[in-house]
């Protein structure tokens, strides 16, 4: 089957039906391997066992950004090619991305309690993820406000793209603002100092989370296509009803 055939919603549905069991299996396998690696991973010499939170915090942060990227690509598909499948992909990605963003915030603040002594610090990274979460909620609210699906898709696509332009600016501004108010950050993950015994479980977990995202996204896209069918059929039923 050529890739172009997937553009047809019915073909896409049968493709998802065929692929989804395999994706689910691969996700479960990746999580089994990843969680075993996490279990075996040594404690950090500074943070102790709390470093284990990182194995879910960092992948969710990655998926929070990945989700917006998926939505932006889909938004281009909506605006440039007016493709209904792109509408479906954008709409299905929003709640999943928001869920991972929320998970990133929760684990970040649970990590912060032992490290900083408080649940919430207006740290540059946490704050920008928080703003990203607000933007996800805004897009979902916009989707839920406009009744006509194809108009909702186009309007949400513009907001998504404006957001994609703005996210780097927000990230940079928040970092600037943070250096003004809080000179030193306690949490440091970046840099070349991360040891392989931590890095490998982290990468496996990131792969498992990404597989989970793809699986859920396909399943949610299938739901959205079915939902549109139900909507069309209900409209036709209403039209055919006597007395109309």
């Amino acid at each position: 089957m050529a890739l172009i055939d997937l553009a047809n919603p019915s073909r896409f549905l049968s493709f998802v039906d065929r692929v989804l069991p395999w994706l689910t299996g691969a996700t479960a396998l990746a999580f089994a391997v990843g969680l075993n690696q996490v279990y075996l991973a040594p404690d950090d010499y500074q943070q102790g066992a709390t470093v284990k939170i990182m194995f879910i915090h960092v992948p969710s942060a990655w998926l929070a950004m990945f989700g917006w990227t998926v939505m932006s690509v889909a938004a281009l598909g909506t605006l440039v090619w007016r493709h209904p499948l792109a509408d479906v992909a954008a709409k299905a990605a929003a709640p999943i991305g928001a869920a991972f963003t929320l998970l990133c915030l929760i684990t970040g603040s649970l990590w912060g309690r032992p490290m900083w002594g408080t649940y919430w610090v207006w740290d540059a990274r946490l704050t920008s993820v928080f703003v990203l979460f607000l933007m996800y909620l805004g897009v979902i609210a916009l989707w839920r406000t406009i009744e006509d699906p194809s108009r909702a898709a186009r309007v949400a696509a513009i907001l998504t793209l404006v957001g994609a332009i703005n996210i780097p600016i927000i990230k940079y501004s928040v970092e600037f603002w943070n250096t003004l108010h809080q000179p030193a950050s306690v949490m440091r993950l970046d840099g070349p100092t991360i040891h392989a015994s931590i890095l490998i479980p982290l990468l496996v977990m990131a792969a498992a989370f990404t597989l989970l995202f793809v699986t859920l996204h396909f399943a949610a896209m299938r739901n959205e296509i079915l939902r549109r069918r139900v909507r069309t059929m209900q409209l036709m039923q209403a039209q055919a009803a006597p007395g109309s």
């Binding site: 607000l134 909620l137 805004g138 609210a141 404006v162 703005n166 927000i170 501004s173 600037f176």
Partner: peptide, 17 residues
Amino acid sequence: ILLSVLVLPLAIPVLIF
């Protein structure tokens, strides 16, 4: 209300600077 919710996050950099 939706307008405010959509616009405020985008205005954060302006507020900061």
